[in-house]
Design a protein around this nucleic acid. Sequence first.
DNA 1: CTAAAGATGTCCT
DNA 2: GGACATCTTTAGA
Length: 203
Amino acid sequence: MQGPHHANNSKAPITRGFYERNTVKVAEELLGKTLVRRLGSTVLEGIIVETEAYRGADDPASHAYRGPTRRNEVMFGEPGHAYVYFTYGMHYCLNVTTETAGQAGAVLIRAVQPVKGLAEMKRRRGTEHVKDLSNGPAKLTQAFAVTKTLNGHDLTSRKKLYVTKPSHQIPLNITIGTRIGIRSGSEKPWRFFVKDNPYVSKR
DNA sequence: CTAAAGATGTCCT
DNA sequence: GGACATCTTTAGA
């Protein structure tokens, strides 16, 4: 019997050990997990349906390729933190850090399927079209109110932003591809998405 | 100090 | 399919 004390267990953040592994593996296994954003009493949730792995010295497409800088230092830190960066003068992108501390790695969350807090997401995105709320890395950060202030945020805490496991993970038809929007490293098969899911970004 | 690119999205034709 | 918005970060002089 599941009493009130256990009612929240399925909502517990994924623990650090999940993130402290090979970035490519974490990218694949993040599919199907739930991204949770707490904004006061408002809760936003989405199922992760598209990710990309970015590593370090072996990955010319990665911000961490040439070593630590002010921007990418979170990628070199403890796994299980948010790496949020600003790009194109107007967009934020959300990553989760991976690999053991000192080793660079992060997974870009490219798309989620909205499941809770749709009204708030619509307001933030300025559209009523659910399919356009979070089918892209900068769209989902807008829908989920993720900005630079969350850079470095610990995703194993139950506050503000974290990732949870569904109580029963249904089997996913995962498709592997090459990463989008990069110049070098474009041959690496480090993009993962749920086949035929309508919330995957289109390019 | 200066310049150029950028893990994108939107609007236009 | 292409233009363009918009500004931080980084590399190089």
